[in-house]
Structures are given as C-alpha cells and as structure tokens.
Design a protein around this nucleic acid. Sequence first.
RNA 1: GGAGGGAUGGCUGAGUGGUUUAAGGCACACGCCUGGAAAGCGUGAGUAGCUAAACACUACCGGGGGUUCGAAUCCCCCUCCCUCCUCCA
Length: 434
Amino acid sequence: MLDMKLLRDHPDFVRERLATRHGDEGAKLTEVLTLDERRRAVLAETEQLKARRNSASKEIGALMGQKKLEEAEARKAEVRTLGDRITEVDRLAAEAEEARDALLLTLPNLPHASVALGKDAADNPEIRVHGTRPHFTFNPLNHIELCEKLKLVDFARGTKLSGSGFLLYTGWGARLERALIQFLLDLHTEEHGYTEVAPPYIVGEHCMIGVGQFPKFRDQAYAVQEGLDGSTLGKLYLIPTAEAPVANIHREEILAEKQLPVRYVAYSPCFRAEAGAAGLGTRGMIRIHQFDKVELIKIVHPDRSYDELESMVVHAETVLQRLGLQYRVINLCTGDMGFAAAKTYDIEVWAPGQGTYLEVSSCSNCEDYQSRRMNMRYKRESDGHNLLPHILNGSGTALARLFVALVETHQQEDGSIRIPEALQPYLRTDRISA
RNA sequence: GGAGGGAUGGCUGAGUGGUUUAAGGCACACGCCUGGAAAGCGUGAGUAGCUAAACACUACCGGGGGUUCGAAUCCCCCUCCCUCCUCCA
C-alpha cells in the first residue's frame, strides 16, 4: 500500500511513477484523492460534534451530582439530537474511508528511481552473465525425454491424479527433488545467515492482502473449503509462495530496531491456478500448478534495504554456481515489475533442452509497501518512533525449473545425469542412470 | 463438535455507567541525592488522526454492532487463547 501522505502531498509525482508501470493505474489516483478529501472534511465535522457532546455530557454528570435533575433532563434532550447527527456523519466518514482504502489496495508500488523505464520483458537490462553453456558432442535430450527415460517424473500419472500441471516425481526424481530442497536450506542457513522456518501452506486472506497478492490476483489462488461447510470457502487459501506466510510472521508487531535485519528461509510447495496463462496444457515442468520453492525473506532497516537486495541476489546466484549451471541476472524494467516490488532482479538459468533461459529466482525490494499493509513496524531507538521496515523477498530458488536446467545441463552421452559435487552428499550418488 | 473461563498500555495488573485526560507495580527517560553506583525521592513518558509546528480537539481497553446525554464497564454477534469432554495423526 502506498503512503496516503505521499499521495496527498505529491500527487503528480505518484501519478508519473505509476504511469511507468504496465497497465497504468493513474486514473484511480484521482478517485483516491477525492475520497480522501471527502473523508477528511467529514471527519473534521464529526470531531467537532463529538467534542461538543463530550463536554455537554460532563456537564450533565455534574448537574446530576448536584441533584439538578430537571436541568440535566433538558440538556439530555439537547444532546440527543447531537448524537443523531454524529451517527450520520460518522457513517459518511466510514464509507469514504472504506472506499478509499479498498481502492488504495489496488494501486501497485512505485518503481525505485534506479529502475530502467520500459514496456515489457524485452526492455529488461541484463546485469551480468555467469558461467559457460554446456557443449554437447551428441544430440542432447530435453527434460521431458530425460525424465521419461530415467523414470524421474511420471507425467501421465501426475495428470491422471490431479489434471494437467501436476507432477508425480518417482524414484530418483523424487529423491533429487528432496536433495535439492535440503541442499538449498542448508546453504542459506549455514552460509548465508538465514533462520529456517517451516510455515503453514494455507493462509488467511489477510496474509494474502499483506503481501499484495490480494485483491488483485485473487483469480490466481486456490481457495480452500472445510469439509461440506461452504461458508468457509474464501477464508483460507493455498499459498502461491512461502512469501505469503513468512513475510507476515511479524505482522501487527513492533520490532526492536536492534532485531533488524530479520532473515528467514523457508521451503514450501507453491500452488498457482495460472488461470489464463500460456504454456499450461503442454507437457513438461516449466509452468505447473504446484511446485517446490525455497524462499528468502528479509525484514530490514529502510537505510539498508538496497544493500540487502544486492546480497540476496548473490545468495540466490550461489545456488546456481554450486550446481554448475549457466545463468544471467536481469533487472526488471518498470513495465515488467510485479505488483508490490519497487525493484526486482530476476535470475534466469540456461536450459539447453529448451534453448532458452528459465526464470528460477526473482528477488524484490518491496520497501514499506507490504509492511504498511501488514502494520508491521520497528521502534527507532533514538526517539522511540514506530517506523515501517522494508521487506524483501527472493526465491532461493524455485525447484521445478532448477530440476529442468540441472538434468538438461548435466546429461551425458549414455543418457545418465552427472550429479554436481555440492549435491552428492545429499543424494549419495554421483550419477543417475537408467 | 460440546461445556466453562479469559483477552485492558512495552510487560504486569486494578477497574460493573459520570474528574479514568485507564489506578498501582515493573521496565524506560531526565533530575535530585552520591566520590561513583544502587536504593530512595521528584518529574516525564502510550498509539494514531488533525497541524508547517505547538496547543487544542478526536479516536483507540481483542474486532464489529447496539442501549445511553455519556460505555473499558450493560446487551448482541464474531475472532483468538486457556481448561475439561469428544474425536484424531
């Protein structure tokens, strides 16, 4: 959520920044400002009325104490009409505030000044490229062929169980997935200083609103119903990312300044409806309804958040380096950025069987956009003021596509997969073969 | 799912209709005292809205609604926590 004060004081600046994003929301800004003005006007009136009522009520109390009952009754009648006005004016204020806030929740974050202006993915500047692409002396297979030959994933039965977009990992495939998860968690806890948490995979609506997932992307979520009780539907949702529960851990709390930075790492499955998305319906593991991910979350001091973003990207890159994968880091331009982000780096891993890069990580600084929605604050030591921390999230990394890049990159001429050294202790083999 | 008990400031804990602008205590800040500290004494201090700022004012006792001139206090609904029963991995 954007700062209402900023909208009031610098509407043109906000309008201009919003216009750089995909799907300009600037028109809503005017409406928010109108509603805000109405609210403030009505609020001023109701506060005056309440002040009058409060002092009158005190006088009535005093009159009753002096046993001047008749006078008291007369004043009561007077104040009663005041009360009716207050009820009415209060209602107007509440309505204006509700409408304003509902609209405010639909405005995306403002891009940071350092973010390149652009329209879509084609305008994303490339920051750096790492590693060399594998060179094959034979005809390399794609991950679908490899998974079927080595029986790593049973695509047909995954679809039989849950429909297209769901995977059944089998044998060494299931073990590889599990090994990757543990490798990632150990890396980030032991080498990068994150605290591991294991969150719920179902969260309340307030958590989805907190991270900016709702109200805009309601159609992308799986809603849960408890048993036959239809009234529970729409209260709880399967998480689209561990960001939803983990970023909300300290919602409605006031953290001590010296607690910052807070760094969490969490494994979770991620559930995405992908309504209207291209590429579902074809086989494979690139875009699916359920995938595993290890997520990084940081809650940091506002002065430090852009340094923390840089180190977070490095943490995610380390994953790909250890696994011997070629990748590049790009910076999302204003038109391609996600809803809550002020600045985002994407990491894309090279998948030889696809002949393209696949996005396996997205690291964003959301600044105070989420903490304001969550009412998460920290107490500044110097003066005791409660301020909004900055919240960052990053994949470290998403698994299914990492799996694809891994098997496609490390495939051998005999059809086996060479396991990178970093992973061998977890999988307890250096090779997967038929 | 059933029965009962709870939710008050950073923490603890009083408060069943009117100087409660929420007592007292702990912790906190400043001052006095001291060679210095502790103890003691004194003073201050919640969050937010409004304001250029300050004063004033308004709101906030889990959330929402109601009764009343006036609600932390009375009534209704909801959420969460605790105890017991039931069920269960």
